[in-house]
Design a protein around this nucleic acid. Structure first.
Lengths: 189, 210
DNA sequence: ATGTTACTTTTTAAAGC
DNA sequence: GCTTTAAAAAGTAACAT
């Protein structure tokens, strides 16, 4: 029988990107013209615009910079930003420059397909923190790629801090290899 | 050269003033939590190292000292939760927790993993349970750990469930509500842990239905 | 006793306090 | 440092039914 090594699986859950329009924006005017826009300057300087598809929330600042959150991929970020700009234009807000989009953070969930001995992992892994009194997952700070992983005894993992999908893939492969090497991952698919 | 001496003297004075205030804070916390002197001494040592590492700058003396006290309790395996300590602090649990993580990372304080068994004696005495029941609860916790049922769970909740089961088995039954209150967790947590332990450890309970 | 909602942890940008 | 936004993980909590 051929042994097929069970590779960990992962799924991107959230992509956060910063957007630069290079022009000032009148948030008051946007808030007046777009009814579902949320704007409370005393609470937060950004105006919040939520899109149903792709399901995202974008923070818009008077400097013309924005932060788009909630997208499941870089392509969704692009779609969301295009939609936002189209929406603004449709309400009479002039946008002249092309948006400069930069992915700032990618959050992914992964499955190592096995159970993890968190207690032993906490002792063996140097940059880890495990405080079950506070949070059920072990927090592991990986240096390459520079991401933070939340590891649960179920073998489920959350990877955050990556700027490219490639980093997520490497981080998940690295932690899978590392936990196996340390003998704290018990694979059982 | 005089300038250098002045700077050093000023730094020394501010550190002494900070430490004096910290000791007052430590005594207050120690009295309210009823902590033994050994723990307070250790907490002061931890606070001193944090001060020497400039970790107190920009943070309240109160929060850092509360974090030092929590770290000392953990080191000496005293069953004090972070919430319990934060209760007597003006800063919230969140702030104390942040200072605690800072101590672990920047002051290289090493703290043993929390053990549910450490909570058993205190909860047991609050419920006035016998030594045999306390011993039985610790056995249950040991079995649970060996069966891999403790990962990620709140040690206080596990201790509460083990005590609940041990008390029933030794004919000293306490209600889930009483155990939950003594362990400072909710009834739901005691119930969830208890159900899991009974099921996964094949624990036989005397006919205690209803 | 169960169900719902909500909070704990982590990451990241934005402008201003 | 804080404020706001999204998202996952598993555990605990608060309040409703």
């Amino acid at each position: 029988m051929i042994k097929i090594a069970k590779q960990p699986t992962y799924e991107i859950q959230n992509v956060v990107a910063s957007v630069t329009l290079n022009q000032r924006l009148d948030l008051e005017k946007i808030a007046e013209r777009i009814p579902h826009a949320e704007y409370s300057p005393e609470q937060f300087p950004g105006l919040v615009l939520r899109l149903p598809r792709p399901k995202t929330a974008t923070l818009i600042f008077s400097s013309g910079k924005m932060v788009c959150t909630g997208a499941k991929s870089e392509a969704e970020v692009q779609k969301a930003v295009k939609s936002i700009i189209k929406l603004l234009k449709a309400h009479g807000i002039d946008i002249k420059n092309e948006p400069i989009i930069e992915v700032q953070n990618i959050v992914a969930s992964a499955n190592l397909r096995g159970t993890v001995d968190l207690e032993r992992a906490a002792f063996l892994l140097e940059n880890s923190m495990y405080e079950p009194e506070q949070f059920p997952g072990l927090i592991y700070r990986m240096s390459d790629p520079k991401v933070v992983l939340l590891i649960f005894s179920s073998g489920k993992v959350v990877c955050t801090g990556a700027k490219k999908e490639e980093e997520v893939r490497r981080a998940v492969d690295n932690i899978h290899k590392l936990l196996k090497e340390q003998g704290v991952l018990f694979e059982e698919p | 050269r005089l300038r250098k001496w002045q700077v050093r003297a000023r730094a020394q004075n501010s550190m002494e003033r900070n430490l004096a205030q910290a000791v007052i804070e430590l005594e207050r916390l120690g009295a309210q939590l009823g902590l033994p002197k050994a723990v307070l001494d250790r907490a002061l040592e931890i606070y001193r190292s944090a001060l020497n590492s400039n970790l107190v700058r920009g943070r309240s003396i109160e929060s850092v000292m509360a974090a030092a006290v929590y770290a000392a309790c953990r080191e000496m395996r005293l069953p004090r939760t972070l919430d319990e300590i934060a209760l007597y602090t003006r800063a919230g649990r969140k702030d104390v927790a942040r200072c605690y993580r800072l101590l672990l990372r920047e002051a290289s304080i090493k703290v043993p993993l929390p053990n549910a068994a450490d909570f058993v004696p205190r909860i047991g005495s609050l419920l006035r349970l016998s030594g045999a029941t306390i011993k039985r609860a610790m056995e249950i916790i040991d079995q649970a750990r060996n069966a891999g049922l403790t990962a990620g769970k709140d040690p206080a909740g596990l201790a509460a469930a083990a005590i609940y089961i041990a008390a029933i088995q030794n004919g000293e039954m306490r209600t889930q509500k009483e155990v939950a209150r003594a362990a400072k967790v909710t009834e739901v947590t005691v119930r969830n842990r208890y159900k899991e332990l009974v099921k996964r450890l094949d624990i036989k309970l005397p006919i205690t239905k209803k």
